[in-house]
Amino acid sequence: MSSSEHGIAHVHRDDIGSRLGMWLFLFTELILFGGMFIVYAIYRFTHQQEFHLAAKELNTLFGTLNTIILLTSSLTMALSITALQKNQKGLSIFLQLTTIVFALAFMVNKFFEWSAKFHHGLFPGSDVLMEKSNGEILFFGLYYIMTGLHGLHVIIGVVLIGTMTYFTSKNRITSDNYVRLEAAGLYWHLVDIIWIFLFPLFYLIT
């Protein structure tokens, strides 16, 4: 038990503890989305036909492309940690930056997708939407909130990974102290998992 510096509350390194804490935080994110999946499940159950109809408006191609982008970014994120563990700092930074580029590509794609919907007058409260059936209004409400919140998480992920890249370049994350990079990675994979479920539920139920 190393005694801590006087006056500074308790410097104590516990990587397992840090990861445990990160996982607990991920559960709250998971259940946050879980709550929305519950709403989705109930409304899909009570408005089956209308959900089918509404899902036809979504572009499967956009969705599939974004799935591939996000899965690949998860790969580069995982690889960047391995690279750091193998003490390949340059490669790790490159892989982290690649992850960020993929994340941004995801958002650009998302932007075009949403723009197209708005162009067709399909946004919350719009006249076009209000004329549709209740089930379709609910579907689009959920679509915007769930993909929107997911997009917000992607943006947070970009900032988070960007910070880690900065830390790596400044040697504050190193091959024997990389728990923060791991935590960022865990977060990023969770964002991926949520998309893995969003994709079929919104784009593939036509």
Binding site: G185, H189, D192, I193, I196
Partner: peptide, 8 residues
């Protein structure tokens, strides 16, 4: 797969 491998 993501949980067990990517997330260790």
């Amino acid at each position: 797969l993501v949980l067990t491998i990517f997330m260790h």
